[in-house]
């Protein structure tokens, strides 16, 4: 099962992010990781890795936010210098351009995860597979 993140369109204005987090708080959604990409034209896209992406997306949408589920590939890395570089080298070697990626360190302080958001998630899966890197299942991602 492919994992999903929630992507939300936001105006770049005070209080907008807070509106989103308040919906998630009310719904009891736990956020694992996030990135915010802003365009120069006054808006941005918030990407959230959460425990229940489908519920989060539905609730946000009901609250009026443009929100969608986007496929992601999540891999586990060691929390050490050079680990991210090794992962990205695999993708670069395969000629793949990463549109958006982010990571977070897990509670054990030994491992980290890398979240990759690309159009063709299957291709990324294959690259990691052939390099012997195991991508996380959706269940694993949501249970982090």
């Amino acid at each position: 099962m492919i994992a999903h993140q929630v992507s939300i369109f936001l105006e770049n204005k005070p209080g907008r992010l807070e509106k989103v987090t308040s919906v998630l708080k009310e719904t009891g959604i736990n956020i694992r990781a996030m990135t915010l990409s802003t365009s120069s034209a006054g808006w941005g896209i918030l990407n959230l890795l959460v425990d229940r992406p489908e519920t989060a997306c539905k609730k946000l949408s009901e609250a009026g936010h443009p929100a969608v589920l986007r496929e992601i590939v999540v891999v586990r890395m060691q929390d050490r210098s050079g680990a991210l570089h090794d992962m990205l080298s695999l993708l670069a070697l395969a000629g793949l351009n990463v549109q958006n990626a982010y990571g977070t360190v897990l509670g054990d302080n030994k491992t980290a995860i890398l979240v990759i958001d690309v159009e063709d998630t299957e291709h990324v899966q294959q690259i990691f597979d052939s390099a012997g890197v195991q991508a996380l299942t959706s269940k694993e991602v949501y249970g982090l």
Partner: peptide, 18 residues
């Protein structure tokens, strides 16, 4: 206003639209 149903989460698509 960006319409909800047209949002795909793709920043480039929105920039192109603009």
């Amino acid at each position: 206003e960006l319409q909800k149903e047209w949002f795909t989460g793709d920043i480039e698509a929105l920039e192109k639209l603009s």
